[in-house]
Design a protein around this nucleic acid. Structure first.
Length: 419
RNA sequence: GUGGCUGUGGCCUAACGGUUAAGGCACCUGUCUGUGGAACAGGAAACUGUGGGUUCGAAUCCCAUCAGCCACCCCA
């Protein structure tokens, strides 16, 4: 095979498109219902935007970016996530003068240079939602409700909502000091990865899966016990909303996320069915990002949902989606003299809004076979006999009945048959 | 970046180191010169991922490489 798709990319074949169309329609319909407006940003941005926004020390920036220099010498990067570009657009387009908060959704591909595995791709697709311009826990709630609604109404089973707060620049540093002190005391038992993490991303030690680290994690100080009063109030209020609405969630003090911009609320939606990956959606609050990227101090909250993970979970759980419509009419023509009349008929049907296709050639048998295989409900036969009478033979493929129909009545007869 | 498993027509699978790599699905054609689905018959389609090596002889054994899958790191 000379050409194969690049590692970690996929051909989304016609057979799976019903899932994609269904999910896209579902997510965008819900987002609009919640008052979100669509924003499309470029698939690539200046590299510096991500380096600054996502965080120079994160894995995403350090080793996963598809970066390149264009012919003008500009350093560009295929977006590894949506939030940085969305915030850039908010600032650049002066959205701070729009009614606040601004509620935006986006969908499309993102790119990360990683080793592929179950549920992980180098070109991935996300549905993204952001509320920019409100510090209220109500904004967090809205984001979480939308995320929850998307998965629940898709019919996915076994969902779990993981929730935590990672504090803010006021309370997090002192917590990290305490966490580091705790780990220093157990430095001899923790794994090498955690020794490294302690320097590069201390919060991530809480996420370690190695057996030897579990007792250390269990005994580690919990950040939720070290939040400043503002963060603690925010978290308590959000939880009271969720409790009042009866939305189940799991407090997970080990939930820390790999992007630098998160403050206060962080959450993930977990589902079963994709090997080692359980997170189908992740998000949280990022109150410092707008200012960090050069805008006015503006609080915000959002989430990203992985579309291929949605497809995979739905397939694993056997959730059916509606089939995509195919043309109900197939035009069959016999002999050279019938070709042009058949094409005219085809065009007439389409102009009348009836889906129709035509055989490119072959015997009557062969053309009817094609009609059957393509799932047509009606075959319209145009041959010598029909031409002589000035009409067509309308064959109902499900019933196996057929009758002659004058040309002028074909559209009406087809519509009647299709109900 | 690290580790494990796997590469045979479009898809699924068979072939003790020994002739022209076999079968099923799908595709096309015919049986039926103007009638689909079923059946039957036929056809097209693979230099066995690639490159080396061992051997009289390699799909089969060895090495390398590439790709896929899975896991780690990390994330959707």
């Amino acid at each position: 095979m000379k050409f194969t798709r690049p590692t970690g990319t996929q051909d989304i074949l016609p057979e799976v498109q019903p899932y994609w169309e269904h999910i896209l329609r579902h997510t965008t319909t819900l987002a609009r219902q919640y008052g979100f407006a669509r924003l499309d940003t470029p698939i690539f941005e200046k590299t510096q935007l991500f380096a600054r926004g996502v965080g120079a020390g994160t894995d995403v920036v350090e080793k996963e970016m598809y970066s390149f220099r264009d012919k003008g010498g500009h350093e560009l990067t295929l977006r590894p996530e949506f939030t940085a570009g969305t915030v850039r657009a908010y600032i650049e387009n002066g959205m701070r003068v729009a009614p606040q908060p601004v509620k935006l959704y986006a969908t499309g591909p993102a790119f990360r240079y990683e080793r592929p595995q179950a549920g992980r791709f180098r070109q991935l697709h996300q549905f993204n939602a952001e509320i920019i311009g409100s510090p209220s826990p109500l904004a967090d709630l809205e984001i979480m409700l939308l995320a929850w609604d998307i998965y629940e109404t898709l019919g996915i089973q076994g969902l779990s909502f993981q929730l935590n707060s990672t504090g803010c620049p006021k309370c997090r540093p002192s917590y990290i000091e305490e966490l580091k002190a705790h780990y220093q005391a157990h430095f001899d038992v923790i794994c090498d990865d955690c020794k490294r993490r302690l320097e590069t991303a201390p919060l991530r030690v809480l996420d370690c899966k190695k057996d030897q680290c579990q007792p250390v994690i269990a005994a580690a100080p919990k950040i939720t016990a070290h939040l400043c009063s503002e963060c603690a109030d925010h978290f308590a209020t959000l939880r009271s909303y969720l409790d009042d609405l009866g939305r189940p969630y799991t407090l997970n003090h080990r939930l820390v996320r790999g992007l630098d911009y998160y403050t206060k609320t962080v959450f993930e939606v977990w589902a079963e069915g994709i090997g080692a990956q359980s997170a189908v959606c992740g998000g949280g609050r990022y109150d410092g990002l707008v200012q960090l990227l050069g805008g006015p101090a503006t609080p915000a909250v959002g989430f990203a949902a992985g579309l291929e993970r949605m497809v995979m979970v739905m397939q694993a759980q056997g959730i059916a989606v509606p089939p995509l419509p195919t043309p109900p009419v197939f035009v069959v023509h016999l002999g050279k003299a019938a070709r042009l009349p058949a094409v005219r008929l085809l065009v007439t049907l389409r102009q009348a809004g009836v889906g129709a296709q035509i055989a490119m050639g072959g015997s009557l048998r062969s053309q009817l076979r094609q009609a059957n295989k393509r799932g047509a409900r009606i075959a319209l036969l145009v041959g010598e006999d029909e031409l002589a009478q000035g009409g067509v033979t309308l064959r109902d493929l499900a019933r196996g009945e057929q009758r002659y129909v004058p040309l002028g009545q074909v559209v009406a007869a087809v519509r009647e048959r299709l109900g």
